[in-house]
């Protein structure tokens, strides 16, 4: 499993872990719980953006069929 996949798993887990915290916080209107939930959820989204914007991209060839169809 490559590094990108591992990071994506981390991102998915963070987003999914943040969800029940957000639910409890939102349902009970508890700002602290909501804030914790948001931080965890946003970290998940942040990991994806970090991978795109700052991580060193591996040499990649575009899909061979990308241009021919459009």
């Amino acid at each position: 499993m490559n590094k990108k996949m591992k990071l994506l798993i981390v991102a998915s887990l963070l987003a999914l872990m943040g969800t029940p915290i957000l639910y409890v916080g939102g349902k009970d209107n508890n700002p602290t719980t909501m804030m914790i939930g948001f931080i965890v959820f946003c970290l998940g989204m942040g990991v994806v953006l970090y991978m795109k914007l700052f991580a060193k991209a591996p040499a990649k060839t575009p899909p061979s069929d990308a241009k021919k169809t459009s």
């Binding site: 957000l22 639910y23 939102g26 349902k27």
Partner: peptide, 25 residues
Amino acid sequence: AWIFVALISVFVFRTPMETLALSTV
């Protein structure tokens, strides 16, 4: 885009934290 939607929801569409949290869930 989700981050921008969240910010716009709070600052433009006056979305409270509770709505933001429950909408995300």
